[in-house]
Simulated scan of single mutants.
Amino acid sequence: MRYVALLRGVNVGGKNKLPMALLRNALEKTPFYGVTTYIQSGNILFSSDLKSAQCADIISELLKSEFDLAVPVMVKEQEEISKTLKASPFKTRTIENSKFMSFGFLNESPVQEKVNTTEEFSNDMETFKIIDDVIYFYCGVGFGKTKMTNAWFEKKLGMTSTMRNYNTTLKLTEL
């Protein structure tokens, strides 16, 4: 099975430094093969015969033991990432301007009541839909100006999320 591991909060704003070359080398000692990383923000692609939860546990333990990092790790099948792009409720807006589109990958599907109260904050320029365990977020004001940050979504939903922009998400389906 081909997987994508999404690490939350590495190499962002000078915190949680994690050189991808060192990470790739460390992952070679695991039951993973075909390991590659994409950009410096904690994207790992690999193959394994293990289940996704087992892979996440292995990566979490490796991050703690080798790099003294305790960061959330989400492992998704690469095909799931591809389906996420195809399922976007904002395809038209994405085609027009992909730089305003991002995806928040959640550690599980949120409680519907929290989804309903969170979606009340959506407006024409900052609109999102939460489907299963993904936040589809179109941010026409620009991600540097929005108050709807990854931390905002985590607080509103009461769970872990990690965001990837459209271009990164697309690349994770192609590697």
Rank of each mutant, 00 (worst) to 15 (best):
N43K: 09
S98R: 15
K129I: 04
D57P: 09
F137Y: 14
G14I: 05
K64I: 01
K156T: 08
S98A: 14
K99G: 09
E126H: 13
T146L: 10
N165L: 05
M163W: 04
N165V: 05
T162F: 01
A5Q: 02
Y33N: 14
D57W: 02
S102A: 01
S161Q: 12
G13T: 11
I130D: 04
L18M: 08
K99T: 13
D49I: 00
E113T: 13
D49Q: 14
F143A: 08
S41C: 08
T36S: 15
F121M: 11
S60E: 06
S65V: 00
D132A: 08
D49P: 10
R2H: 12
A56Y: 03
L85V: 02
N150L: 01
V73I: 04
S88A: 06
N16K: 12
Q40M: 02
G140T: 05
S48W: 05
P110M: 06
V141R: 15
L175F: 06
K147E: 12
V111M: 05
F143K: 12
R164D: 03
F137M: 09
L45W: 00
A70H: 13
T92E: 14
S82G: 13
L157D: 02
N11A: 07
T169Y: 02
L172Q: 08
L85D: 08
K15S: 11
P31D: 13
K15Q: 15
K51A: 10
E77D: 14
T127S: 10
K156W: 07
A87C: 10
K99Y: 09
L50Q: 11
Y38W: 14
N167M: 10
S52K: 14
G42F: 02
I44L: 03
F46N: 02
D68C: 08
K29R: 15
G142C: 01
R93V: 00
M148S: 01
T173P: 10
S52Q: 13
N167E: 13
G42E: 04
V134Q: 04
E61V: 05
I130N: 03
T84E: 03
Y3A: 02
T84V: 12
G104D: 03
E119G: 11
